[in-house]
Each structure stands twice: as C-alpha cells, then as structure tokens.
Design a protein around this nucleic acid. Structure first.
Length: 563
DNA sequence: GCCGTTTTCGGCCCGACTGTTTTCAGTCG
C-alpha cells in the first residue's frame, strides 16, 4: 500500500516507491511469519528492509497500524490506487485524472472514461481511452491465474503450432512458466528467427487460429488473448545469436535480472536481451547461450527454477549451485490409485502402462482406506486380498516391480484407519488427512509420524490451489516430528495440490527431512504429473539425495530401519 | 528508502511498444 501511494505521489523521489515495493516483495516471499524475524531482531537482514521500514514493521506488529500510512491515506485518492494493478493505469495517468477531474473512486473513473470527459484531457486520445476500458474489463476475467500444469499444456500446444513455421530456428517457453512457478499469469514464448521471417510468425500468432484478441503487435513481439482459455500469451522473436541473452532476460525473474545487471554494471558490463556488452569498448562479449551470460560474470549457470533472487546469485558467484534433481533420477512413483478404490485402471493395465511409458524400478499401489467412503476406500480384508493380487502379478511378470501400499486416512485423533496388523504387511504406507480441515491438525500429523508403519505423510498441508487453504498446522513441529521419527513428507504432484509447496519443501530440505515426489495418480494421464512435483523440488533447491524416490527400493527401505 | 569487492553519498536495469504528439512520455515486462 505504501509502495503504491509513493508511486502515485512520485515527484521528488520515485525510488522510495521502488524501495517499498522491494521490501513488500521480500516480506511476501518469506517462508516464516514476519513476527519471527522481529523476535529474532533480524528484520534488517531481509533484503530491502532498512531502518525506516523496520520501524514501520515494528509499529505495525505492536499497534496494528502504521501512522505514516494512515496520514498519507488522507493525502491521496486511496480508492483510485487500486486501478494501478490494471494494465495501462500508471501513476501519471491516474494523477492527471485525479488532478483535473477530482475523481475519487473506480466507478467514477469508469463513468468518466465512458462519457468522454477523460478523453478531453491532454494525453488521452480515443485509442488510449478505449484501451483503458478494455483493460478494465479484461482485468476481471484474468484475475485468477493458471495452474502450472494447465499453462504447460497450453504453451506446448502453441509451440507445436509455431515451431513448424519457416525459419523458426529455436522456440522455448520463458517467464514464470520456465521458472515453473505454481501459478502462471501469462504464457511467454521466445523464438529465434531471422528478421525476414518474423512478420509471418507474428501474423500467424495473432491470427484467429490462436488469438481471440490482439493486445499489441510490433516487429519483434506480440501479445494476444488466447482463444482457448482467454489468457494472455506473448511471443518475442530474436536473432539466433541473441538467443541466450534473450532467454535469460525473458525468463526472469525481474528481481533476479536486476540483481544480475547491477553486478554486470560493477564490472563495466551491460546486460540486455541482445547480449553482454563491455560498456567502455561497446564490444559484445557474449549472448548466444545462457551459460555465456552467467560465465561472463564469473558465475555458474543458474537453473531457471532457482532464479528468484533468493540467494542463488551468491551461490553461483561462489560456484556452489546444487545439481538439482532431474526427472531421470526418479526411480519410482509411491502414490498411485487403482480401480480397487477410486482409480480408473486395473492393476494389470496400470502396470503395463507404466512399464511401457516410464523407466521406473518400482511403483506403490496406494488405494484409500475405509473411512474415505467417497473414494471407495477399502477395509482390512480387501487390502489383504489386494496384497495377494499384487504378489500374483509380480510372480507372473517375474519382478518385484509392484509394491503393495495404502493411502491410509489419519483419523481425527491421529490414529490410523487401518489396523497395525494390516499396515505391517504393506510395502509402503502413506498417511493423509482427508477430513477435518478447520482445526489445527499438527497433533494428528505428529501422531501419524509416530506410527511405526507410516513411511510418508501425504499432501501434508491439505491445500487446493485457488480452492481451499491449508488447514492450520505448525509446520515446524511437523518437521521436527518427521525428522525424529524418520518419516518422509510428500511433494504431492497433483497440479492443484503441489503440496508441499516450494517454500515448505525448501524448509524440509534444509532441516534434513527427506521428501518423496508422488503423482497421487488416478488415471493414466496423471502419471505425467511427476514433472510438476519435480519442479516443486527443483524450486526448493533439492538434489537427488533429498528425494527418497531417487533411491533403489532396497536403499529406500533402509531409511526405515529406525522405525 | 536502500545499499556498498571502486562508493556511507550517489546511484537505483533497460529496451519495446503505444498513443499522442511532431519528438516523446508513459507503461510494461
């Protein structure tokens, strides 16, 4: 809020607004609550927080308000500032509208746009007014973001259409999509093509095949609203020799790039989307590959998933970038549902499909337990029957590929929905909470960890992105319990779960709690979700050693000798 | 307002696109 007020006030010091924006972003991205840092007295260790903002935060934590903000609120049309979230409404335009027409609310602005009074102002022509109105409308439909998985599918579709065009030398996703953020605002695609080929590529991109609206089009870039899902997609076209610098630039994040550029500046280099340049000689040093960009600053190449300016640049300068876990490191999927409960495939079909399409060494069938009625949960008797069925299939195939398992419900008191006798006979037990989202579930989860037959806690926070918040939970207590009992935590790879999310997965990784990436699949197309879980792990800076299902089955079971 | 491997003062990423101008300001990513 302070950031947008200062942005609006602008004037003598525009950098104050930027400072507040930076601080606000840092606080938003903290893994722990801000009061934690206050208690520790480490607020000013947070990037972007100095003496002044520290005292603002302290004031807010003790009194619930910031005096400075309350005063400023009376100096600016506070309701108008909301409009700055909408494309086209910058501080200067709003200021003009406010000063000349004395408008106070969003509704008044919309009316003034429609009745032509804004168009009479200097700098507001008919096109601008039309765009502002259109962006206002658009903002409503674009409020929610895409899930990573949906955005990936959409982007792959666009790439498949564009890549066969003449002279498309290279094409790749960029932006938050390439960094694999859990939700995506718009789809960014980068293309390498010679100048003469660009017009045809852009013509195709903005054509009705893909676009329902063209937002902007130039010689090197274009923005459209996709026909398929009414989301925004952008393309940029560069020369092949600019590929690395352009890909680096358009992948971001913004904070990562700004940090990188300031380092470059200190070395008398300049980085832009066209390459790395020596400022003094104006000579181009590199830019054909991303490696050239980072290497020119004596840095290691940084994987896209790490580029958030959360300390990865310092790691790269010290050549300490971890070798992140890769898809080919994953040796098995440990949460899969069959048609014995709510899955679609029979055990036979499931095994055949996975063995044909994946190179796994093992998979665990983890059907639901009896209290999950809606999911056709199974009782003890049925689990015993399934164990024999699995044995029979393994025997017939001459392998031990298929592991018997369960996704057992954690009941309200923290006990489990299956008897220890049956749990003891299963190869793999994941325990999850499926009901009771309102109460603090820390105790339930800790008790589940303490059960000797539980290997893993499934979707530990219970959130559904955009639909349901996590149930209340003291995550640090869960981490302690997991660490103490040697219980693993799941990165559930369902696109709308991604649970643990990247920040919690990072905390677990730092604490030495091992993680498991599982698809929680219910049908054949779900098996692909593994890559979603993998991107969470990579955003949490996980190496293979942090992920238990990169181990062979023998090594995996050895983790539980304590239990 | 924040920050520091040239700096505790003087910087703060940088180029494309749009629309309104008639050479550029505003906005975005």
């Amino acid at each position: 809020m302070l950031a947008s007020i200062y942005r609006f006030l602008g004037g003598d010091n525009p950098f104050r607004a930027i400072a507040y924006e930076n601080a606000s972003r840092s606080v938003r991205e903290l893994s722990k609550d801000i009061s934690f840092y206050d208690k520790q007295g480490t607020l000013t260790d947070i990037q972007g927080i100095g003496k002044s903002i520290e005292s603002d935060i302290k004031e807010f934590l003790t009194t619930g308000v910031i005096g400075k903000l309350e005063k400023l609120k009376h100096k600016v049309p506070i309701e108008l500032l909301e409009l700055m979230d909408i494309t086209g409404f910058g501080p200067q335009s709003l200021k003009t509208i406010y000063k000349k027409l004395h408008l106070q609310t969003k509704e008044e602005v919309i009316r003034a746009l429609e009745d032509g009074s804004i168009q009479k102002l200097k700098g507001f022509g008919p096109r601008k007014v039309e765009n502002l109105l259109r962006n206002l409308k658009l903002h409503k439909t674009l409020e929610s973001r895409m899930l990573l998985y949906d955005a990936l599918l959409e982007a792959e579709g666009i790439i498949n259409l564009l890549s066969p065009l003449t002279n498309v030398k290279k094409i790749e996703m960029a932006g938050s999509l390439r960094r694999r953020k859990e939700t995506i605002g718009d789809i960014d695609i980068l293309i390498a093509a010679p100048v003469k080929a660009r017009k045809k590529i852009i013509d195709f991109f903005v054509s009705p095949t893909l676009a329902s609206k063209t937002l902007a089009r130039g010689e090197t870039r274009a923005s459209i609203i996709l026909k398929a899902n009414q989301r925004q997609a952008d393309i940029r076209i560069v020369e092949e020799e600019e590929w690395g610098s352009a890909l680096q630039y358009f992948t971001g994040s913004k904070a990562h790039n700004i940090h990188l550029r300031s380092i470059a500046k200190g070395k008398d280099f300049k980085i832009n989307e066209y390459g790395v340049f020596n400022i003094k000689t104006t000579k181009r040093i590199g830019g054909r590959t991303e490696e050239e960009i980072y290497n020119s600053l004596q840095m290691q190449m940084i994987p896209p998933e790490m580029r958030e300016d959360h300390g990865e640049i310092e790691l790269a300068l010290n050549h300490n970038i971890p070798s992140l876990v890769r898809l080919q490191d994953i040796r098995g999927d440990l949460q899969m549902h069959s048609n014995w409960s709510d899955g679609q495939l029979s055990l036979d079909d499931l095994v055949e499909y996975v063995r044909t399409n994946f190179k796994y060494e093992y998979i665990a069938i983890t059907d639901h337990s009896k209290s999950s009625r809606i999911a056709k949960g199974m009782d003890e008797k049925k689990f015993l029957k399934q164990i024999s069925a699995i044995e029979e299939i393994n025997k017939r195939l001459g392998t031990s590929f298929l592991k018997s398992g369960a996704e057992v419900d954690i009941l309200s008191d923290g006990t489990l929905d299956l008897s220890d006798e049956v749990l003891a006979q299963l190869d793999w037990v994941t325990a999850s909470i499926h009901v009771g989202f309102k109460n603090d579930n820390t105790k339930r989860l800790v008790r589940a960890c303490q059960n000797n037959y539980v290997h893993c806690i499934g979707h530990p926070t219970g959130r559904l992105i955009g639909k349901r918040e996590s149930y209340p939970i003291d995550f640090n207590k869960l981490l302690e319990a997991a660490k103490e009992t040697g219980t693993l935590l799941e990165i559930n790879a369902q696109p709308n779960r991604m649970d643990l999310h990247d920040e919690y997965a990072l905390l677990a990784q730092e604490k030495g709690v091992k993680l498991v990436i599982s698809t929680d699949s219910h049908k054949a197309s779900d098996y692909d979700f593994m890559k979603i879980g993998l991107s969470v792990a990579r955003r949490a800076w996980c190496k293979p050693e942090h992920i238990a299902n990169t181990l062979s089955w023998k090594e995996l079971k050895r983790l539980f000798t304590k239990k």
